[in-house]
Design a protein around this nucleic acid. Structure first.
Lengths: 206, 206
DNA sequence: TAGATTGTTAATCGATTAACAATC
DNA sequence: TAGATTGTTAATCGATTAACAATC
């Protein structure tokens, strides 16, 4: 096991490993070799062995990997064995989709509270949550240790809401606003719909 | 100007260049140097000059880049000067968010038709579109040249819908299903919410 | 044992950064 | 002209692939 720093490219492959392994697991597959897994995922067997070697030794010469064992190892590596908490800011259309449909628990997260600025929705129930006013956010973050803030607010308030979240001590921000927010040490993970579609546009135009 | 193949990392930086330049443009900034732009975007000046050199020469020694000129150049590079067409498959919650709120035109796309399998919504109006049954999809793709199919269907029908889109000759698929679909030569751009959140989970756990 | 497949080292390939002559 | 900044070449750094001894 090589103890070098885990690079970003490897980190972004971990969820894909997990998805592939989870699929095999659900199909009751017992063992898988690095080349089989590579075929399934569209990467080389070499890369898989190289990646896994950053975290430990999970296989067995001449046999490969036990699917259930490796799946659990990847869960552990990604920190999925410990549930993390989130709050959602912005109960607009996208916010509602996430809170109504996104499988937080499946991904080892819980959604603990939702906030908005619109007096029309504050106090109303959306799904199993009662919408709180953002003025309560600071106090909530004080009383509850929250790991991640989910940003589904309009662009215009993205930075301000980020500042509140950072001040409240969240460790990560899941940002859907298609703007860059500055959050200091706090880790920001972006889902930029527009960037993604523009990339696709480039690729089909050439 | 070096005429080497444009690498994937560079392509994925193009929308970010465009966003930064568009912001400067809206602020009526006239000129920008590679180091200023680099500061703004959080990349090195060297990288910006290196990236741009793949596509041509856009700057002027001792001066930098004209913002309006470079912004237009990036638009052209990304193929934004020609509008591309899309159809949306799956008028569930996420599908509705996209068709009601996503700024297709701003990104040089149009949304031309929406399809679903649910008899309850077929024929109904959603926003400015009348939902069509998927059985009409094939004929629609025959008659209309469609560039991109948007997949906001349940996981279970993701591959089947992909097959129809590929058969119908779309050039790209914007895939929100959090599954890998095989589409042959057709380009697939994924937005995987779960992968993204799991990545964030890893980063805050270490 | 013989065959298969790992984990790891070395070789290759690609991306980023540094440096600088060219020139506005 | 002097200062600033480009576009490009060369140097460095990092990621992927190939190869193979170790061993189940």
């Amino acid at each position: 096991m090589k103890k070098r720093k885990i690079s970003n490219v490897i980190i972004r492959r971990l969820p894909r490993y997990y998805r592939a392994l989870d699929l095999l697991y659900r199909n009751n597959t017992e063992r898988v070799s690095s080349s089989e897994l590579g075929n399934l995922m569209g990467v080389t067997a070499s890369q898989i062995r190289q990646d896994l070697s950053c975290f430990g030794e999970f296989g067995q010469q001449g046999y490969g990997y036990r699917v259930d064992h490796l799946r659990l190892a990847v869960r552990r590596i990604m920190g999925m064995e410990k549930q993390k908490s989130t709050v959602l800011l912005g109960v607009g259309n996208l916010g509602r989709v996430l809170l109504m449909n996104f499988p937080f628990e499946e991904n080892a997260f819980s959604l603990d509270a939702v906030f908005d600025t619109d007096p029309v929705v504050i106090g109303k129930k959306v799904g199993r949550w009662t919408v709180r006013g953002v003025e309560e956010l600071e106090a909530f973050l004080m009383e509850n240790s929250v790991d991640v803030g989910i940003l589904t607010v309009p662009k215009a308030s993205a930075q301000e809401m980020t500042d509140s979240l950072v001040k409240g001590g969240v460790r990560g921000i899941w940002n859907f606003t298609n703007t860059e927010v500055s959050a200091g040490e706090t880790i920001v993970e972006n889902i930029h719909f527009s960037d993604s579609l523009l990339t696709l546009g480039y690729l089909i135009s050439t």
